[in-house]
Amino acid sequence: MISVRNLYKHFGGVQAVNGISLEIQTGLITGLIGPNGAGKTTLFNLIAGTFPPDQGQIMLDGEDVSGLRPHQLFSKGLLRTFQIPHEFHSLTARENLMMVTLTLLRETLISAWFQRKTLHQQERKIAMKAEEVMEFLNIRHVADELAGNLSGGQKKLLELGRTMMVDAKVVILDEVGAGVNRTLLKEIGDAIELMNQEKGYTFCMIEHDMDFISRLCNPVIVMAEGKLLTEGSAEEVKSNEMVIEAYLGRGASSGLN
């Protein structure tokens, strides 16, 4: 689905992404882990078009999408969530969800006047969809609350909810589970699995919770210092010496044994 080739990005003197190449396979839930500063979020930002890479290529479904802006990637079916939740403060949770479908509405200045009925129907459909999503994520009770007033966890759910509003091909999740309680985390995991199996969404997620990763992700990609360290199933990765070293420092793996 997504194939990254030889990607570089630096900020000042920091080489955040240092020549990484990897594949995100269609239909799978790929996990991306690595110690802090490994360049995971930068890689996500590059894939999502937040900024262009210094060098290298990003292919989406065989098409070169390096340097495209987020709104162009949206129309190609790529969605993302943010590590620190983003929301439209001045809109309610429901409106936040409905906003995702805004550009899919067929509306012109003229039809806004004259075909209000058709538009109204379109909007009702979207409103019902939003209702469904909120029900699913258990945030219906805050539907009419301004999104800026929601709790951190609810904002996280809203982030995930946005990706459920439209039919995306691939969704990249940046620490969707961070700051969410255990029960909710399980539900989020269920939601992701369901979307993956029933709707065929491809996922790639950054996560620190190894249990969460082990449950959902196969394969797991490990990054360190802007490079690909290793790739494999969660079990393989967990017992890989290089991975333990990257997290805990050199010599740590021998100490553990």
Binding site: T50, P70, F74, R80, E87, F88, V100, L102, T103
Partner: peptide
């Protein structure tokens, strides 16, 4: 950022 992510 979010507006761009909604395809705007």
């Amino acid at each position: 950022d979010l507006a761009l992510l909604s395809g705007i």
